[in-house]
Structure formats: C-alpha cells, structure tokens
Amino acid sequence: ALRETGVIEKLLTSYGFIQCSERQARLFFHCSQYNGNLQDLKVGDDVEFEVSSDRRTGKPIAVKLVKIK
C-alpha cells in the first residue's frame, strides 16, 4: 500500500485527525492504529501512514501510523 505523510492536527483520547501533506484532506485515525507509545504522540508531529477506508462509511481513514523522527 502507498504510504503518505501528514501532521497530527487534533488528538483526543482514542482518536485524532491528520492533515495530509499530499492531498487536501483531514483524515481520521483511531489511536489503536499508532504503533508506538501514545504519550509520545502530540499535535504537530509528522507521521507516516497508509490510507484505508472506513468499513461503515466508506470514507478514507489513516491506518498503520508511524511517527517520523
């Protein structure tokens, strides 16, 4: 799958939103999709991810998040 990059724009307890670098979009992500310690993730962090689609709504979502050092 194609990896994309973006910036954490909003972060809540169990989910957040990424502002994409490659496209004009804000993508939802669930915190279970982040492969690191959530305490280390904060607004403004650069992340890399794959784009999938929500099974219920069909909308694009970010999965398999990795923080870019």
Rank of each mutant, 00 (worst) to 15 (best):
A1V: 13
A1D: 14
A1L: 14
A1Y: 02
A1S: 02
A1W: 09
L2E: 12
L2G: 08
L2K: 15
L2V: 04
R3G: 02
R3Q: 02
R3Y: 03
R3L: 03
E4C: 04
E4M: 10
E4P: 02
E4N: 11
E4Y: 05
T5N: 04
T5Y: 02
T5P: 06
T5H: 03
T5E: 05
T5M: 04
T5W: 02
T5S: 07
G6K: 00
G6M: 01
G6L: 00
G6T: 00
G6Y: 00
G6F: 00
V7C: 13
V7N: 10
V7P: 00
V7M: 04
V7A: 12
V7R: 13
V7Q: 13
I8S: 00
I8T: 01
I8F: 01
E9G: 13
E9S: 14
E9Y: 08
E9D: 08
E9R: 10
K10S: 12
K10C: 04
K10L: 06
K10W: 03
K10Y: 05
K10H: 06
K10R: 11
K10T: 07
K10D: 14
L11G: 01
L11V: 06
L11N: 03
L11H: 04
L11K: 14
L12N: 15
L12G: 12
L12M: 04
L12F: 10
L12P: 02
L12Q: 06
L12I: 12
L12S: 05
L12W: 04
L12T: 05
L12K: 14
L12D: 08
T13S: 05
T13F: 03
T13A: 03
T13M: 03
T13E: 03
T13L: 06
S14Y: 06
S14G: 07
S14A: 09
S14K: 05
S14M: 09
S14C: 04
S14F: 04
S14P: 06
S14H: 03
S14D: 09
Y15W: 10
Y15H: 12
Y15D: 05
G16S: 01
G16V: 02
G16D: 02
G16T: 01
G16H: 00
G16N: 00
G16L: 01
G16K: 00
F17L: 03
I18D: 00
I18F: 01
I18Y: 00
I18R: 00
I18G: 00
Q19S: 12
Q19R: 13
Q19V: 10
Q19M: 07
Q19T: 14
Q19C: 12
Q19K: 01
C20H: 14
C20G: 12
C20K: 15
C20E: 05
C20I: 06
C20S: 13
C20V: 11
C20D: 07
C20M: 15
C20A: 15
S21T: 08
S21Y: 12
S21P: 07
E22I: 04
E22H: 02
E22F: 02
E22Q: 07
R23G: 08
R23W: 04
R23S: 14
R23Y: 07
R23M: 08
R23A: 06
R23E: 04
R23T: 06
R23N: 03
R23C: 07
R23V: 06
Q24A: 10
Q24F: 07
Q24W: 04
Q24P: 10
Q24I: 09
Q24K: 11
Q24C: 11
Q24M: 14
Q24Y: 04
Q24D: 15
A25R: 08
A25Q: 15
A25W: 14
A25I: 06
R26C: 13
R26N: 04
R26S: 15
R26K: 15
R26D: 04
R26V: 07
R26P: 06
R26A: 10
R26H: 13
L27N: 01
L27V: 09
L27P: 02
L27A: 03
F28V: 08
F28Y: 13
F28P: 06
F28N: 03
F28C: 06
F28G: 05
F28R: 09
F29E: 00
F29A: 01
F29R: 00
F29L: 01
H30C: 05
H30K: 05
H30G: 06
H30Y: 10
H30L: 05
C31K: 11
C31M: 14
C31L: 09
C31R: 13
C31H: 12
C31G: 12
S32E: 11
S32T: 06
S32F: 04
S32R: 09
S32C: 10
S32V: 08
S32Y: 10
S32I: 06
S32W: 05
S32N: 08
Q33D: 02
Q33M: 13
Q33F: 13
Q33Y: 07
Q33V: 11
Y34F: 09
Y34R: 07
Y34H: 09
N35I: 01
G36Q: 08
G36F: 06
G36I: 06
G36Y: 09
G36W: 03
G36L: 05
G36K: 08
G36S: 14
N37C: 09
N37H: 15
N37Y: 08
N37T: 15
N37S: 11
N37R: 14
N37M: 12
N37W: 07
N37I: 15
L38T: 14
L38V: 06
L38I: 07
L38N: 15
L38R: 15
L38D: 13
L38Y: 15
L38H: 13
L38W: 14
L38A: 12
Q39L: 07
Q39I: 15
Q39P: 13
Q39C: 06
Q39D: 05
D40Y: 06
D40N: 10
D40V: 03
D40E: 05
D40M: 07
D40L: 08
L41F: 08
L41T: 01
L41C: 14
K42M: 12
K42N: 08
K42C: 08
K42L: 12
K42H: 15
K42V: 09
K42E: 07
K42D: 04
K42Q: 10
V43G: 06
V43T: 15
V43E: 08
V43K: 07
G44V: 00
G44C: 05
G44A: 05
G44N: 07
G44D: 11
D45M: 08
D45K: 01
D45C: 07
D45A: 05
D46P: 10
D46H: 14
D46M: 07
D46F: 10
V47P: 00
V47S: 00
V47Y: 01
V47L: 11
V47R: 00
V47M: 14
V47Q: 00
V47H: 00
E48A: 13
E48Y: 03
E48V: 06
E48H: 10
E48Q: 09
E48W: 02
E48K: 11
F49A: 00
F49C: 01
F49N: 02
F49R: 00
F49V: 01
F49W: 01
F49G: 00
E50A: 11
E50L: 09
E50F: 06
E50C: 07
E50N: 12
E50S: 09
V51M: 14
V51E: 10
V51D: 01
V51T: 05
V51P: 15
V51S: 06
S52C: 15
S52Q: 11
S52A: 12
S52T: 13
S52E: 14
S52F: 03
S52Y: 11
S53W: 11
S53N: 06
S53G: 13
S53Q: 09
S53E: 14
S53P: 12
S53V: 14
S53L: 13
D54A: 11
D54I: 01
D54R: 08
D54G: 11
D54F: 07
R55S: 10
R55P: 09
R55N: 10
R55E: 07
R55G: 13
R56Y: 04
R56H: 14
R56C: 10
T57F: 07
T57K: 14
T57R: 13
T57G: 11
T57S: 13
G58T: 08
G58L: 06
G58D: 14
G58F: 06
G58A: 11
G58W: 03
K59M: 07
K59F: 05
K59P: 06
K59E: 13
K59L: 06
K59C: 05
K59T: 12
P60W: 11
P60S: 10
P60T: 08
P60L: 10
I61M: 10
I61H: 12
I61R: 11
I61Y: 08
I61W: 14
I61V: 09
A62E: 01
A62M: 01
A62K: 01
A62W: 01
A62H: 01
A62P: 02
A62I: 04
A62C: 08
A62R: 01
V63Y: 04
V63Q: 01
V63A: 12
V63S: 13
V63M: 10
V63K: 09
V63I: 10
V63W: 05
V63L: 14
V63E: 11
K64M: 11
K64V: 03
K64R: 10
L65F: 02
L65K: 01
L65V: 11
L65Q: 01
L65N: 02
V66N: 02
V66E: 11
V66P: 00
V66K: 15
V66L: 10
V66T: 05
K67V: 09
K67L: 09
K67P: 05
K67Y: 02
K67Q: 11
K67C: 14
I68K: 06
I68N: 06
I68F: 14
K69G: 14
K69M: 11
K69E: 12
K69H: 03
K69Y: 03
K69Q: 13
K69N: 14
